[in-house]
Amino acid sequence: MLVRLERMPIPEFDGVFNFGKEMDSLFSDFLLPSIVGSASYPSLNIADKGDEILLTAALPGVRKEDLKIAVHDGVLEISGERKATELPEKARWIRSELASGSFSRSLTLPRDINQDKLAAELKNGILTVVLPKREQAKPREIAIQ
């Protein structure tokens, strides 16, 4: 399940905009429909390293204390909240593309994962979860007699 609050994302990827002289004209962009609301959040990469599965999630702007990783009945859940930016006094928004709000994404773990030995790290907006495989699931070289 995903609960995500959107704050006026803008479908513009030319990477250049004006602020300063032309600031006010930018507000017309905000009426365009959301382009990022439908995807699962956070985005994940999962890779099999043989003896372990490596999961990485992009979570920019999420602090460690606002992130929760839980395993329940073989399901790994990554949930948390990205706090909204508070507008300082006498300030105004010129562009607001970064989403904020709460999120949750669940993944069913393969049976051969040792759920008691998960390790997680959050660094530079990237969450890394190491999911070690059980001994019997690790690839083994069989010696030829």
């Binding site: 990469n45 999962i46 490596l54 999630a57 990237i126």
Partner: peptide, 14 residues
Amino acid sequence: PLQKEGATAIIREI
């Protein structure tokens, strides 16, 4: 690169 050497990608959204 997020993917380490010798790893097989299963899901690649990032």
